[in-house]
Design a binder for these strands. Sequence first.
DNA 1: TTTAAACAGGACTATTTTAGTCTTGTTTTA
DNA 2: TAAAACAAGACTAAAATAGTCCTGTTTAAA
Lengths: 135, 135
Amino acid sequence: MYVTRKADYAIRCVLYMTKNTWRVTSVDEISNAMYVPKSFLAKILQRLMKAGIVSSTRGIKGGFQLAKDPKDINLLEVIEAIQGVSAANICAIDSRLCRLSGRCTVHPIWVKIREKVEKELKKENFEKLAKKSRI
Amino acid sequence: MYVTRKADYAIRCVLYMTKNTWRVTSVDEISNAMYVPKSFLAKILQRLMKAGIVSSTRGIKGGFQLAKDPKDINLLEVIEAIQGVSAANICAIDSRLCRLSGRCTVHPIWVKIREKVEKELKKENFEKLAKKSRI
DNA sequence: TTTAAACAGGACTATTTTAGTCTTGTTTTA
DNA sequence: TAAAACAAGACTAAAATAGTCCTGTTTAAA
């Protein structure tokens, strides 16, 4: 499980929107507030759209807003919206990717770690995060 | 925390050597047994050398053997010997790498996850792994 | 009705990392 | 002294990461 810059930006972005729930925020605004390159952020928001996490309004005065209640959005979901499923070791995602799997002693350990990490990430919803947030 | 092929091969390699403790094994032998490209494995073994996990004997009939008791070698140590320290998010390794850290709500979560993963990996020593192993 | 602000989406690019290979040299034992 | 084995650095191809850019389309407001 490695969190890319893209997913990290996505998290900041959802966090910002959580603090401005029900208000339409533009890419430009989020970009400036969260120190994320604008055109890169636009791509990220498109992915969050496809995942149903945000919704968009086009045209002047348009922008993005959360499509769900912040308490129903967790970290894992945002990360996976951006980079797909991931794990410490590819074999923990798809055992076919490892020619030793099935016979491999280490395999169950990767699976266990993946489960633990995903559990932690699922526990963290954005309502909770925003309460603690100072940015 | 992402485990590269290199670290994955290193683990297989240490596992093989654990099952042949006190015997000198050549790169060629391990390479064939563990399905790892020979010249790549040679590089990996050099790293394990520097980390003090294996020792080498040069010349004909030379090769590698574990430099420590398998029960004193854990997964984390082998992974870090190959790829250095890692975490789900770079900010969990060095908070200076994140311009929001200190103010970032998500930062403590990455740190917690890193700690949990490292704890799991430290628990797994090679004596234990070899007992379960069928390869 | 036109203009400008904003999203949509595809193509493109530079940099870094990953996963190796290759070559030349040194050691050691039979 | 030849061959088998490690040592170490240079090299390379492919993939992933981190963006940028450009050409559209939409829509509120002047």
